[in-house]
Simulated scan of single mutants.
Amino acid sequence: MELKAERIYTKPADLDGYRILVDRLWPRGISKVNAHLDKWLKEVGPSNDLRKWFGHDPAKYAEFKVRYLNELAENPAYEQLRQLVEEKLPSQNIILLYGAKDQQHNQAVILKEQLQAAFK
């Protein structure tokens, strides 16, 4: 099975599997019905201070990643996510959903990398 990170605005597909929103704030312009979520783990998203500091500026991404990983090390929600992935991934795909326009510089990409490293 596969672990992916995808924008929440991407139309859901039958093979998506288990869909987890990893944003602290609800994404603009999408209803909860149309999100087709299985879980919203808002606590695993970056803190408001870190999110505001980053501002989705690709030039700040490397430092954002360091700071976010430091937050995750102290965040029980990350352990909850890790356990959920460990439980679900053997039998179904998992998609980490996010609202950011930038598909390469966001917390879901970092979470995916961390989780993949944890299960190697």
Score class of each variant (00 low, 15 high):
Ala5Thr: 07
Ala5Ile: 05
Ala5Tyr: 03
Arg7Glu: 10
Ile8Gln: 15
Tyr9Cys: 10
Thr10Trp: 11
Pro12Met: 14
Pro12Cys: 12
Leu15Val: 15
Leu15Cys: 15
Leu15Pro: 15
Gly17Ala: 08
Gly17His: 09
Gly17Asp: 10
Arg19Tyr: 05
Arg19Asn: 09
Arg19Phe: 07
Val22Trp: 00
Val22Gly: 00
Arg24Ala: 12
Pro27Phe: 08
Pro27Glu: 08
Pro27Lys: 07
Pro27Arg: 02
Ser31Val: 15
Asn34Pro: 02
Asn34Trp: 02
Leu37Tyr: 02
Leu37Pro: 05
Asp38Cys: 10
Asp38Phe: 07
Asp38Trp: 05
Trp40Asp: 14
Trp40Gln: 12
Leu41Phe: 09
Lys42Phe: 03
Glu43Asn: 11
Gly45Ala: 05
Pro46Ser: 06
Asn48Gln: 06
Asn48Lys: 09
Leu50Ile: 11
Leu50Glu: 09
Phe54Gln: 00
Phe54Glu: 04
Gly55Cys: 06
Gly55Tyr: 06
Asp57Pro: 08
Asp57Val: 11
Pro58Gln: 14
Ala59Trp: 06
Ala62Pro: 01
Ala62Asn: 00
Glu63Met: 14
Phe64Cys: 02
Phe64Asp: 00
Phe64Gln: 01
Lys65Arg: 10
Tyr68Glu: 06
Asn70Trp: 09
Glu71Lys: 07
Glu71Leu: 13
Glu71Trp: 10
Glu74Ser: 13
Pro76Arg: 01
Ala77Asn: 01
Ala77Ile: 07
Tyr78Asn: 04
Glu79Ile: 11
Glu79Ser: 05
Gln80Glu: 08
Leu81Thr: 00
Leu81His: 05
Arg82Pro: 04
Leu84Ala: 10
Leu84Asp: 04
Val85Ile: 08
Lys88Thr: 12
Lys88Asp: 03
Lys88Ile: 06
Lys88Arg: 10
Gln92Tyr: 03
Asn93Val: 04
Asn93Arg: 14
Ile94Gly: 06
Ile94Arg: 01
Ile94Lys: 02
Leu96Ile: 05
Tyr98Val: 04
Gly99Arg: 08
Lys101Tyr: 15
Asp102His: 07
Asp102Arg: 05
Gln103Thr: 06
Gln104Leu: 15
Gln104Pro: 13
Gln104Glu: 13
Asn106Phe: 00
Ala108Ser: 13
Ala108His: 06
Ala108Met: 14
Val109Phe: 09
Ile110Met: 04
Lys112Ala: 06
Lys112Glu: 04
Leu115His: 03
Ala118Met: 01
Ala118Gln: 02
Lys120His: 15
Lys120Asp: 13
